[in-house]
Write a protein that binds this DNA or RNA. Structure first.
Length: 531
RNA sequence: CGGGCUGUAGCGCAGCCUGGCUAGCGCGCUACCUUGGGGUGGUAGAGGUCGUGGGUUCGAAUCCCGCCAGCCCGACCA
């Protein structure tokens, strides 16, 4: 057994703080070593930062609130893009690109939209720099007649173009997606979860009828849920936002919500039915079959690099990142083990052949990607390097293995390791990767199920969302399914407990009794603390 | 935009209160040795205008004033 028995396991129970009595019973007073300190249960937010650092995904930049996405993190994003992009294309969408800058007046057209984004816009006011004699540095010069906003989202600039493009019902629908960066001047930022600049995709569609636009809104939510569950292995709840939580300017906002290992909710994607709000503000009109002039119905939908944060907080453990195989930049890493020059040549030759054979196997729409780590580093150092980066499979090849035409294979998700015949590995690698993918999904789903409760009264609600230790709150709470009479009535309690209404689930939802007021309630919502 | 704090080597910090040898420590980095199925141990070495501008003083990382930058706690948020 290469891994100590306490490693590689995962359950909701493990996230609990060990009680003092349990801790003292730990055998041989040997504290469990983890690659990441602190552990999740010791300090979850700090653990998150450390995982990113040790996995080499991203780091803070000299620009306030903006991150640098490093090669390993960017490769992950590229894999997400590739899978999503195909799903968008398969549902009839095309990619296009619109400007980074938006004239300020565009943003002013839709009242709620202005209100929603005005507070966090970066504004460009000048178009030139000149020497500043006073400071010896530079100062802005050439004021713009109209300030330009760095896009916080592109409804307005894209809508302005759509207004030109749409004249007849024959021009509809327009189904366009854009991969872009956007800027929202956030006060407090965290890598991937909330950065001032982030990468995303935003779909913007125009339809002749309300029904068709609503269908599109629902369809794209399903695409996001499909991606989250089947590619990221992140189980999500699909639901509708309450009016107070809607996108500024939307008639309906749908979202997928995921539970992180600290049991807080993370909104992982949104799809908005914008009604005719933007088309009226921007004059997106068309002549219908009867020759009547009508305003179009629009939608928008997006997911961002925040998904990487969701992926980390769903799967990573106290030894670092754990990547779902379908999105992993490398499926496996081969660690050659040798003593001298003679065995080095022999081992490397064997490794290269193995890599070539595995590379002929297809998995999740691409060739199995294998890296050989032949750096002149200590074996242990290399092993932990790849553990922390979350590579799904670690393949160790030494002279003893070659003698048996077998290799040593270790799974990142469970820590299990076994000797596998070379031919067996090549034949079964897709099964092994699928097993990891499924295991990640199942255990994330179990965490969500284990920490989702139905609550029918205020007392239970308060107890559920109140930590036992107020000074150093332990991981607590989860998803609470509650009927509620109205958003306004529950808001004071939510503010007090720092709980939010995540969404009203689309499935298994119906009338009931409000947990707070006892009044009849139309629907149930997921309540949770959130990122 | 309110309240608190910090700027000393790539990173993390000590020194400052009570001014005084050549400004230290850990990690990391470089070289060599050692080790080799697990994050090894050793030896040597490189690296600092102590955020910035001024003041006090024989003498300032240390005391005083200004400025700049960043962090944390609130309101806001994919």
């Amino acid at each position: 057994m290469i891994f100590p028995p306490w490693k590689g396991y995962f359950s909701a129970v493990q996230l609990e703080q060990p009680s003092p009595s349990q801790a003292s019973v730990t055998p041989m007073n040997k504290a469990p070593q983890t690659a990441i300190t602190p552990t999740r249960s010791q300090d979850y937010p700090e653990w998150y930062q450390q995982v990113i650092k040790h996995a080499d995904l991203a780091e803070n930049s000299p620009v306030r609130g903006c991150m640098v996405i490093k090669p390993w993190g960017y490769a992950l994003w590229e894999n997400m893009q590739r899978a999503l992009d195909k799903m968008f294309k398969d549902t009839g969408h095309q990619n296009a690109y619109f400007p980074l800058f938006i004239p300020m007046s565009f943003l002013e057209k839709e009242a709620q939209h202005v209100e929603g984004f005005a507070k966090e816009c970066a504004v460009v006011t000048h178009h030139r720099l000149e020497p500043d004699p006073e400071t010896g540095g530079l100062r802005p010069a050439g004021p713009l007649e109209e300030p330009l906003i760095v896009r916080p989202t592109s409804e307005t600039i894209i809508g302005a173009m759509y207004a030109k493009w749409v004249q007849s019902y024959r021009d509809l629908p327009i189904l366009i997606n854009q991969w872009a960066n956007v800027v929202r001047w956030e006060m407090r930022t965290r890598l991937f979860l909330r950065t001032a600049e982030f990468l995303w995709q935003e779909g913007h569609t125009v339809h002749a009828t309300s029904e068709e636009a609503i269908e599109e809104t629902n369809k794209m939510l399903k695409v996001y849920a499909d991606f989250a569950e089947n590619w990221m292995a992140v189980p999500v709840i699909q639901g509708e936002k309450t009016p107070g939580e809607r996108f500024p300017g939307a008639d309906m906002t749908l979202s997928i919500e995921a539970m992180m290992q600290d049991r807080k909710a993370l909104q992982a994607g949104t799809s908005h039915f914008l009604g005719q709000n933007f088309s009226k503000a921007q004059e997106i009109r068309f002549q219908d079959k009867d020759g009547q002039l009508a305003y179009a119905w629009t939608t928008s939908w997006g997911v961002s690099t925040r998904l990487i944060g969701a992926l980390i907080m769903t799967h990573a453990d106290d030894d670092g990142l754990v990547l779902p195989p379908r999105l992993a930049p490398a499926h496996a890493v081969i660690l050659p083990i040798y003593r001298d020059e003679e065995s080095r040549v022999q081992v490397l030759e064997y490794c290269n052949r193995l890599k070539a054979d595995l590379g002929k196997v297809a998995y999740a729409g691409r060739a199995v990607e294998v890296q050989i780590d032949d750096r002149d580093l200590r074996g242990g150092e290399k092993k932990w390097y790849h553990v922390k980066r979350g590579v799904p499979l670690r393949i160790e090849v030494g002279p003893k293995d070659i003698a048996k035409d077998a290799v040593f294979v270790a799974r990142r998700d469970t820590g299990e390791s076994t000797s596998v015949g070379r031919a067996d590995l090549v034949a079964n690698i897709t099964t092994m990767l699928d097993n990891i993918q499924n295991n990640l999904f199942e255990r994330a789903k179990k965490l969500q199920a284990d920490n989702t409760v139905t609550i029918t009264n205020e007392k239970d609600f308060r107890a559920y969302f109140t930590p036992k230790n107020a000074d150093e709150p332990e991981i607590h709470g989860g998803f609470a399914l509650c009927h509620f009479a109205s958003e306004e009535l529950v808001q004071p309690l939510l503010d007090e407990l720092k709980v939010t209404i995540r969404c009203m689930p689309l499935e298994n939802n119906g009338p009931g009794t409000c947990f707070l007021t006892g009044q009849p309630a139309e629907r149930m919502a997921v309540f949770a603390k959130a990122y």
